[in-house]
Computed example of a mutant assay.
Amino acid sequence: MKIAILSDTHAKKHSDKLFELIDNLYVESDMIIHAGDYISNSVVSKLKEHKNFVGVWGNNDKGSIRNLLKEKIILTIEGYKIGLYHGHGNSKTTLNTAYDKFSADKVDIIIFGHSHQPLVLTKNKILMINPGSPSCKRRELWYSYVILEIQNKKISVQLKLFK
């Protein structure tokens, strides 16, 4: 299973490059996971054109996006429990907020966004993945997303960076 992971697309009116990336990711991936902050319904619609899309809403998503998606999801893929949450919160770092959101759920992997800073690390035996952003890098040098591959109980994570 090859999964493309996105977050924080913050799409405005002109989303051609983002839509091209999404189309390309669907050609090379089995699934796309988006960790919230789409901003535009058009991004959700584009992702939903493809059958294997899973996503949650982020703190900047309003109205109809929140009606279409959940705030938190737990998936099981190839035997791994994967928690998906945007990462927004008031009192802690984004990493700790996402981690704490699943403290009672016994997940193997947590996918989150919010900070726009790509990150792949383990925290207390849980793989933490933040793909950064493919379209709104803020203070980062690179745009980014992640490819997660799960095959024969083995995990491979590739951080994809581009300008």
Rank of each mutant, 00 (worst) to 15 (best):
G79W: 08
S64T: 13
K72G: 01
V44Y: 03
N41V: 11
I77V: 14
G63N: 15
E71Y: 00
W57L: 03
V56T: 03
N67E: 13
S45Y: 08
I73T: 14
S45M: 11
N59Y: 03
K70P: 09
V44T: 04
F53E: 06
V43D: 07
L47Q: 04
S64A: 11
N59D: 10
H50V: 14
H88Y: 14
K46S: 11
K48I: 12
K48F: 11
G79M: 07
L47T: 05
K48M: 14
K81C: 09
L69Y: 00
I74N: 04
K48A: 14
K48Y: 04
L69F: 04
F53W: 06
L84A: 05
I73E: 11
I73D: 02
G83V: 12
W57M: 00
K81A: 05
G83A: 10
D61K: 01
K70H: 10
L75R: 15
K70T: 02
L47G: 04
G55P: 00
K51R: 12
W57C: 01
D61W: 00
S42Q: 13
N41S: 10
I77Y: 12
Y80W: 14
H86P: 04
N60C: 12
N52C: 05
I77H: 15
G55W: 01
S45D: 11
E49S: 11
L75W: 08
I74C: 07
V44F: 05
N52P: 07
Y85K: 09
F53K: 05
H86E: 07
Y85A: 02
N52S: 13
L84R: 03
V43W: 04
G63V: 12
L68T: 07
L75N: 15
N59R: 08
G63F: 07
G58I: 03
K62Q: 10
V44Q: 06
V56Y: 01
I77T: 15
D61G: 05
N52K: 09
T76D: 06
G87N: 10
G55R: 04
G55Y: 00
Y85I: 00
K48W: 09
L84S: 00
K70L: 01
I82W: 08
H86W: 07
E71K: 02
N59L: 02
G79E: 11
N60R: 08
K51T: 05
N41E: 07
K81Y: 12
Y80C: 08
K72F: 00
N60E: 06
K62S: 12
H86S: 03
V56E: 01
S45K: 10
L69N: 09
L68Y: 11
T76L: 03
